[in-house]
């Protein structure tokens, strides 16, 4: 509905510097964690743990650095459709590769 598109039209959100620095610190810590996790031998799981941490990091970047946390809802829908489409592409490609 048209109202959704323009819900937050006139609010200009100014993020405190502290938030950015906090997010950055969290990202650095997660980078450390992902390197540390790679040293532990988890066999098949290694890559999934790495991907999980990477997803967490990218969520932080998208929400705060890229301001999605403060954008109107339509931007959320956009992101969900784009990522949804991508995940579908991956999963369906593996409908072939997983069974080869």
């Amino acid at each position: 509905m048209s109202a959704n598109d323009h819900a937050h039209e006139h609010e200009v959100h100014i993020t405190p510097y502290k938030v950015y620095i906090g997010v950055w610190a969290a990202l650095i810590v997660l980078t450390g964690v992902t390197v540390g996790a790679a040293l532990v031998d988890m066999k098949q799981m290694t890559i999934f743990v790495a991907l999980f941490i990477a997803c967490a990091k990218s969520l932080l970047v998208i929400l705060y650095f890229m301001h999605i946390a403060y954008e109107s809802r339509v931007f959320w829908w956009f992101l969900i459709s784009a990522f949804g489409a991508y995940i579908v592409f991956v999963v369906l490609t593996f409908a072939d590769y997983a069974f080869r």
Partner: peptide, 10 residues
């Protein structure tokens, strides 16, 4: 020559 399972799904 893709996997048979893939063909069925698609």
């Amino acid at each position: 020559g893709m996997a048979d399972e893939g063909r069925v799904i698609f």
